[in-house]
Design a protein around this nucleic acid. Sequence first.
DNA 1: TTAAAGTTTAGAGTTATTCTAACTATAGAA
DNA 2: TTCTATAGTTAGAATAACTCTAAACTTTAA
Lengths: 140, 140
Amino acid sequence: MITKNCVLTNQEIEDLLVKNGVPATLQRIAICKYVVCEANHPTAEQVFDWAKNNLQKISQATVYNTLGTLTEVGLIRAFRFPHSDKVVYDCNTQDHFHFFDEKTGQLVDVDSSSVKLNIDLPQNYKVHGFDLVFKGEIKN
Amino acid sequence: MITKNCVLTNQEIEDLLVKNGVPATLQRIAICKYVVCEANHPTAEQVFDWAKNNLQKISQATVYNTLGTLTEVGLIRAFRFPHSDKVVYDCNTQDHFHFFDEKTGQLVDVDSSSVKLNIDLPQNYKVHGFDLVFKGEIKN
DNA sequence: TTAAAGTTTAGAGTTATTCTAACTATAGAA
DNA sequence: TTCTATAGTTAGAATAACTCTAAACTTTAA
Ligand SMILES: [Mn+2]
Ligand SMILES: [Mn+2]
Ligand SMILES: [Zn+2]
Ligand SMILES: [Zn+2]
């Protein structure tokens, strides 16, 4: 139900990038490792903050470029949610939904298998997919 | 299933505003009438464009202020969708969902009665509500 | 009639993101 | 080993969607 991040070596991250046609650079390896293995639905700002503390030098443009590239090749996904105007990046590339804890601001993944949707739309509405975000609170 | 806009006189709009504690001004009556009776999920930009063409003088700030006020008192609702970074305003204040036509960019309302959702979340997840947007295409 | 209160306005400010153009690193070619 | 083309990174400027500010109107109500 709740998905967790993987643990990958730098070499494995490098291979992942190259396999997806993205030449591996120091910056890309670091950012990719962070979003794929460590972060939970980070914003570009959070990735940039992390990168500033973990690389000797990094520019905002590189963070945005890299997140864009990783999204393009499908290594991560980008989501825009109703409660914020910042894009969040997600290492979970499966179809899935989200639960937004209104108290903490935390986003957690909800597997699509835990949701069943019955829709009654006109015949001529062809549904290609849907975005679903729960809002609420996680107790305890 | 698909909701339509109402037809109201200026007087009725004025009453609606006053009843909701919003003193009626020329600008507010015009903007309120447009979003409540004419427009379909307009953005602030669209409301501003309409207002420029239909009032002798209007400022962007007034459009944003008025849309904010109307939203606060519950005469309209504000939505932020995954496909755009612009807020859209909605005269449909019932709980409902949306269908986004990926070809035309059009948004149409989907009554909540046409959707049945079965969720299987952990006990400690208290769901207060959810946002649901269908993406697809309306044929014909 | 007049002053307080509320409303509108132009323009400045903010935030998230994208663009630009210069700099840097690197992989072959020579 | 150079050289050089290509790709990647960078700082800072630009953009887009709002939001804020402070001055100018307008209305309200003594
Ligand atoms: Mn509507
Ligand atoms: Mn923005
Ligand atoms: Zn997710
Ligand atoms: Zn709607």
